[in-house]
């Protein structure tokens, strides 16, 4: 029994740091007024580049390896998210369509690159993840838990205690008003999207690396990006609430993972997909209940055109 609880805690910690980081990323984009459906694709690209960096830094000092590959993953996600920013901010494209395109592209790009790196027709990459994992009181803890907590605090401070945060939020609520007091709406929205790219890229890497030592990019990140979107909505676009939403969602996701192997759960004989489904159903219920007083940024999804009022 204690072992099973430990397993549950291990998975919950693993998933919650991923979901929280990516959801925080989505929050920055949406708070600036851009819907970021491309999180799934950004995670794939971040994960891919992170894994490649881990392979390249193999054998180096673990601290350097972690730092280099995490930053590489974040930057890759950031660069990829520029495509979304350019299309939706400069070209005023439909944000959901642009994001969908980036999701489809990401998996295809990742597979082409992974196959090329392998020199074979398999898109599975192998790597060692020992630098990323520490053992604390008998639980395997990965470095992303700490990185995630740092990002959580930073996100809260940036969004609610700095001028940048105030301006960012203004652009998501009422860009015309923000512009009229001299805030550069385009710049703010770029910052929002790029931050989401950075967090999404690291989130994708954090999902892939600590759990396993090889990853087949055929599956992308298996819907984690979409789950993170649900976490963001469940967390009402607020960092602290997103933190709790992420823990809640990852508990279910972990239950799905260990449903077959853990005795007290397998006695229930619930198929694991039930646990997988629950977070989505829970967020639908919350969405329906809070629909009247949703905290969604008012101007999200609407391209900002300087000429219109």
């Amino acid at each position: 029994m204690p072992n099973e609880i430990l397993l549950l805690i291990k998975y919950t910690l693993l998933y919650s740091s991923v979901l929280m980081m990516v959801a925080l990323g989505g929050m920055f984009a949406e708070r600036s007024g851009i819907i970021n459906i491309a999180l799934e694709g950004i995670m794939v690209i971040g994960g891919l580049i992170g894994v490649l960096a881990t392979q390249m830094t193999h054998g180096m000092n673990p601290v350097i390896q972690v730092a280099v590959s995490v930053i590489a993953a974040g930057l890759a996600g950031m660069i990829y998210s520029m495509l979304l920013a350019f299309a939706s901010i400069n070209l005023k494209a439909d944000q959901t369509i642009g994001g969908t395109a980036l999701n489809i592209l990401a998996t295809a790009i990742a597979m082409v690159i992974a196959k090329r790196v392998n020199g074979s027709q398999s898109s599975k990459l192998d790597y060692t993840n020992s630098s990323f994992i520490f053992n604390v009181f008998g639980i395997d803890v990965n470095v992303f838990l700490f990185i995630g907590l740092v990002f959580l605090i930073l996100s809260f401070v940036i969004l609610y205690r700095t001028r940048l945060g105030l301006r960012l939020r203004a652009c998501g609520e009422h860009p015309q008003a923000a512009d009229s007091v001299g805030i550069n709406v385009y710049k703010m929205r770029y910052i929002g999207v790029l931050l989401s790219g950075f967090l999404g890229g690291i989130g994708g890497f954090a999902y892939i690396v600590p759990a396993v030592q090889s990853w087949n990019f055929e599956v992308g990140v298996a819907g984690m990006g979409f789950l993170a979107l649900a976490v963001m909505i469940f967390g009402q676009w607020h960092p602290i609430k997103i933190f709790f939403a992420a823990i809640f969602f990852s508990l279910f996701k972990s239950l799905a993972n260990i449903a077959d192997s853990v005795s007290f759960l397998s006695r229930l004989q619930w198929p694991k997909e039930i646990y997988n489904m629950m977070p989505f159903i829970a967020s639908m219920v919350v969405l329906a209940l809070t629909s009247g007083r949703s905290k969604a940024p008012k101007a999200e999804g609407i391209p900002y055109d300087k000429g219109s009022r």
């Binding site: 299309a87 494209a93 969908t100 980036l102 489809i104 295809a108 597979m111 027709q121």
Partner: peptide, 22 residues
């Protein structure tokens, strides 16, 4: 296939949707 993974077709259609967005 030893040179070119088939997912290149997906990249082409992905780029097409991206362009369709604007």
């Amino acid at each position: 296939a030893s040179f070119f993974p088939r997912e290149i077709a997906d990249i082409v259609s992905g780029i097409i949707i991206y362009l369709c967005a604007f």
